[in-house]
Amino acid sequence: MTRRSTSRRSYLAAVGGAALTGGCLGGTGTSTVRMGVVPDVDPDTAVQQNTGLAEYLESHLDATVDVDTSADYAGMVRAMAAEQVDLAYFGGVSYILARHRADAEPVVVGSEGGSTEWHSAFVAHADGPSSMEDVVAAPGDYDLVFGDPISTSGTVMPTYYLRTEFDTRPDDFASTTHVGAHDATAGAIANASGDVGALNARIYDALVESGDVGDDVVELWRTPGFPDYPWAVAPTVDSDRVGRIREAFMKLDDRDRTGILDTQNVDEYVPVSHDDFTSLNEGVEMAGLLDGDESGANP
């Protein structure tokens, strides 16, 4: 079918400039799938990286797919709770919140090298600390940079592993700043706007490979693995369409749009259920994120 133009700028203008949190993401008819993606990189890039996927899904679902992003991770949770989005690419923590607040249902998760686990990378400026041992020995000497407050690999799990592996908390640092997307974290460290940062390890690897991160940034440590980044549907999506969405993702392979998988930093998509996120759900509960507002000011 012929794709309708849905660039982020033109589409947001058409709905009055509301980035999911205050307006409709797409059409309300059954021939339109409203797809939202968390801004794990800058918003324009997030939409650009998923435009090819939207076009691919259109061909498999016989539906128009409108793709957009939100101002932050919490905005995507609110969008699904407000029935403004049908299919969403969540971070792990934002998915857990969407599960509790909007009954989101995970459909698929990406696999790389046979593993569906993700990791966080702690990085530093080349002129800064040379190891995590240096960092945790005197955290008050360093400024810490995190991503979105409810980013799984940019804030919540790095905080968890700081506590469990090094008996250190973000409050122990000279300052803690949340800059949003993972590439913004890398940029802040490269620009010496912070001393130590944490970001999604696959995104960090991609930034290094593309040359967007140079010698000014060095990796200090990678966390153990954890579940992250499911594609999930709203409860209003009928079971037939859910099945077709899952099948379309699972058909993405070397014979069918490999470039789409490259932009997602995965080799393939595999089926997933909420049971696969049990440990992360427990971690979110331990962090107290289910007790208050989903903005997660103190994860």
Rank of each mutant, 00 (worst) to 15 (best):
residue 257 R to F: 04
residue 182 H to C: 03
residue 190 A to W: 01
residue 122 F to Q: 04
residue 129 P to S: 07
residue 111 S to C: 07
residue 169 R to E: 15
residue 49 Q to L: 13
residue 18 A to N: 12
residue 273 S to F: 00
residue 189 I to P: 01
residue 160 Y to D: 08
residue 278 T to H: 12
residue 6 T to M: 13
residue 23 G to I: 00
residue 219 E to R: 10
residue 250 M to A: 08
residue 199 L to P: 01
residue 246 R to G: 14
residue 58 E to I: 05
residue 252 L to R: 11
residue 162 L to C: 06
residue 214 G to A: 05
residue 238 D to Y: 12
residue 260 I to F: 08
residue 37 V to S: 07
residue 52 G to F: 09
residue 132 M to N: 06
residue 67 V to Q: 09
residue 143 D to N: 11
residue 7 S to G: 15
residue 228 D to A: 07
residue 251 K to M: 07
residue 87 L to N: 10
residue 24 C to F: 11
residue 192 A to F: 03
residue 279 S to N: 03
residue 201 A to F: 02
residue 223 T to M: 08
residue 129 P to Y: 09
residue 263 T to N: 13
residue 183 D to R: 02
residue 31 S to C: 01
residue 152 T to S: 08
residue 198 A to R: 01
residue 299 P to Y: 10
residue 28 T to S: 13
residue 285 E to V: 13
residue 212 D to P: 00
residue 181 A to Q: 04
residue 226 F to T: 06
residue 220 L to Q: 02
residue 65 V to H: 12
residue 249 F to V: 07
residue 285 E to Y: 01
residue 145 V to W: 04
residue 228 D to V: 02
residue 172 D to K: 04
residue 201 A to G: 02
residue 102 A to E: 10
residue 154 G to F: 06
residue 69 T to L: 06
residue 293 D to L: 04
residue 11 Y to A: 11
residue 290 L to E: 06
residue 2 T to A: 09
residue 167 D to Y: 04
residue 253 D to L: 10
residue 215 D to N: 10
residue 8 R to M: 15
residue 226 F to V: 09
residue 115 S to Q: 09
residue 195 D to K: 05
residue 177 T to K: 13
residue 249 F to I: 07
residue 269 Y to M: 03
residue 251 K to W: 00
residue 162 L to D: 05
residue 158 P to L: 06
residue 170 P to K: 13
residue 143 D to T: 13
residue 170 P to D: 03
residue 104 A to P: 11
